[in-house]
Structure formats: C-alpha cells, structure tokens
Nucleic acid binder design. Sequence first.
DNA 1: CCGCATCCGAGATGATACTG
DNA 2: CAGTATCATCTCGGATGCGG
Lengths: 141, 141
Amino acid sequence: MEVTTADTQATEIREAAKKIITVPPDSFALCPVRDILDRIGDKWSLLSILHLGSTDSLRFNELRKRITGISQRMLTVTLRALETDGLVARTVYAEVPPRVEYALTGLGQSLLAAVIELGNWAAAHAPAIAEARERMGRVAA
Amino acid sequence: MEVTTADTQATEIREAAKKIITVPPDSFALCPVRDILDRIGDKWSLLSILHLGSTDSLRFNELRKRITGISQRMLTVTLRALETDGLVARTVYAEVPPRVEYALTGLGQSLLAAVIELGNWAAAHAPAIAEARERMGRVAA
DNA sequence: CCGCATCCGAGATGATACTG
DNA sequence: CAGTATCATCTCGGATGCGG
C-alpha cells in the first residue's frame, strides 16, 4: 500500500459511493449518510452537540444561553430528537425548582468525533470554496 | 500513542468542539461544519454527489433517472449550487441535441471522501440508533 | 425552571407548462 | 435535451401563552 495510493483510494471511494446509492430506498439503511444528515443537518442539532461536547453536562437554560439565537421551542425539539436517537442523555432531578441536565452519550461523542473530521475538511477547503463562490459570483450574479 | 488513547482522543474532541463554538458568529468561518452541512444537508445535494462520484460524468437526464424522485427543477437548483461551490464541473457541448455533462471536481471528490467517512460511522452505529429509537418509541409514542 | 400546544410566516420543494 | 417560469404545497422555525 505504498504505490498508487491516490488511485487506490479514488477507486475505493467510487465503490463506496456505488454501494451507498445501490441500497433499496425503503429502509433505515437507505442511506446511513442521509439519515445522519437529516438528523444533524437541521438548524440547531449540530450546535447543540458541539456545545454539549465541550462540557460534561448542561442544564436547559444554560444551554439556551450558550446557543445564541435559539428559541425555547427549538431547543426542546432539538434535544428531544437527539435523545430519541440515543445521542443525548436527559436526566431529570425531581427537585423543587426543576432541574434537567443534558449530556452527550457515548454514541453522541463518537458522532461528534466523526463530525469534527468533517469540520477539518471544511476548515481546510474553506478558502477553495470561497474562491469558487467568488468566481461564479462574478459570472452568474 | 499506545496508552490512554481513548482519553487523549476524548480531550482532543472536547477542545475541537470548544474551538468551533468560540468562533465569532458572523463570518464564513463561523463554523465550517455548519457551512458544509448547509450545503450538503439539503434533500438532494448528497445524493447528487454520491451518484456523480460513482461514475466519471453524467448527463442531466441520466442523473435525473438515477436519482429517484428528484424533480427537474430541484436537480437544476442542486447542481447549480454545487457548481457555485466548485464541487461539480458543468460542461456544455454546443451540439444539435444539447448535451451537458456533470462531474465531480477534485474538491468534490475530496468532500465525497470525507462524507463517506461519516457514512462509515453511520453504517456502524445504525443499529444502536435504531435501537434507541425503538426504546424511546415505546415510552414516548 | 422546564417544556408543551397553538398559530403563523418564510423558505424549501414539487407539479406543470413553456423555451433555446 | 436541458433547462426556465410560475404556481401550489409543505415543512421548519419563531412568537406567544399555558401547564407541571
């Protein structure tokens, strides 16, 4: 695995892509990528995961303060979805002033790791994308 | 790098998450991950990339046939967006029956590689997610 | 303090008809 | 063949008020 590494990799990628799109379109496995993207591709899921991943656990309103611009409703909705998928753990303390702690599960942490990988790609290629947008902008806009 | 690999990695992830959420909220770099997700997180971009990545190049209607359920309009919109970001190359042949070929650029291929990584995570953890959904389903639904 | 229910506007998506 | 234009729809997200 020393020579033609790039070519080998390119072939593998193509095969992986083929495999993904050949899956029948009516199962959870339809496209694992699609499914994950539908989950974290919305407006707030990723930010929530990021914030939860940067600490051990956070209370509802603590999280609300940190995620600039999120509404109460969307924080609730987002956290519920993440909880449903086993990415976030919700702990309720039956105290007089209700207290609820949210934290990433092991599954959530592993997802965060994967997403940060994607983030590294994004950070590395952001200039190239920005340049492409500039160039197209002058022609089409 | 043999001992406490997991712990080290966990700390790195936490730091990476912190770094990402600390970026000021008004730049392209706001969150490279978010930006990429906004691009490929829509309904058709990822599927388009996947299909284009599984071959060398495809014509418009060829692609349309392969992406089940996409409308002509959305394919156009999606391809234009990907082209704007330099992920897809569009080649027009001025022939009598118009012919337009679409193909992934180098940038697009590298993104595909990153996405497939995420796909591997998704495929590996799909059972865990399905199980979590089941469990929550019985409680909440 | 935490969170749910309802209502509503904006943007994304889809169906259809028409053009180079 | 490869789009564009227009209209209808549909889901998401935000504002507000109520309940545990």
